[in-house]
């Protein structure tokens, strides 16, 4: 099944705060949509990184008790929803006993981010909690939502930047590769005829790489390009 949904659950959060958090995390995706603060489903959003883009749906839910909500969520009736989830983001206070967080909330193919938006927690304490979770092979990661900095002492991303990083590194099953050139190469703007040909070749190469090289389209593209370049060079 295609895992192309992210579910975000808020515990007792006002509509304004909810929208503000959603914009902090998914702001770049929501620009092209008509997202309203009380929407519960936003479809066809695009998550972009320098390497890929992917389409996903954002589901928004609210609850009074995370414990009760998770009990409902792990019920077999929600199997279909869980199987379609790329990830789950819970916005609420981190429980005192983290061992109670069941491993079955999400499976190994999804991510679970627990965003603490209550009293400030020391970053070291949060780091310790995350290490415990990583060691127990749990998919949960705790993030402090109200962070004044983007990075901690080890240059780890924290707060919303970390949430974005987790979404970035998630193994999307249906992402579209952007064919980013390796290393730090940049395509220079054409300055004269020869440079414009070189730029065209470079762009053609990138386009060719994105095609199925065994297809007739790729063959046609290659032959047309070769003809065009030969014409420009006066051959």
């Amino acid at each position: 099944m295609k895992r192309d949904k992210i579910l975000i659950v808020f515990k007792n959060t006002s509509t304004t705060d909810k929208a503000s958090i959603i914009y902090q995390i998914f702001g770049q995706c929501l620009q092209e949509t008509n997202f309203k603060n009380d929407d519960s489903i936003v479809k066809n959003l695009t998550w972009s990184t320098k390497y890929y883009t992917t389409k996903f749906d954002l589901y928004i839910d609210q609850c009074d008790s995370i414990e009760e909500w998770t009990t409902d969520f792990i019920d077999p009736m929600c199997d279909l929803l869980r199987d379609a989830l790329a990830g789950l983001i819970i916005i609420g206070e981190i429980p005192k006993d983290t061992s109670l967080i069941s491993k079955s909330v999400v499976d190994q193919e999804s991510f679970l981010i627990w965003c603490h938006n209550g009293n400030q927690i020391e970053l070291n304490e949060l780091d310790d909690l995350n290490l415990k979770m990583a060691v127990s092979q749990s998919q949960v990661e705790f993030v402090q939502l109200d962070n004044s900095t983007d990075k901690n002492d080890y240059h780890d991303k924290v707060g919303t930047e970390r949430i974005k990083e987790i979404i970035d590194t998630y193994e999307w099953t249906h992402s579209k590769s952007l064919n980013t050139p390796r290393g730090q190469k940049k395509v220079l703007p054409p300055q004269d005829n020869l440079e414009s040909i070189l730029t065209q070749l470079q762009q053609a190469k990138l386009h060719y790489e994105s095609l199925d090289t065994d297809s007739t389209d790729a063959e046609q593209f290659a032959s047309e390009l070769a003809k065009e370049i030969a014409d420009k060079l006066g051959l």
């Binding site: 390796r182 290393g183 070749l201 053609a204 190469k205 060719y208 790489e209 290659a222 070769a226 370049i229």
Partner: peptide, 13 residues
Amino acid sequence: DAIQNNDHLDRVL
């Protein structure tokens, strides 16, 4: 990288 790029270019051309 240059060798790899040349290979691609040869293939395209």
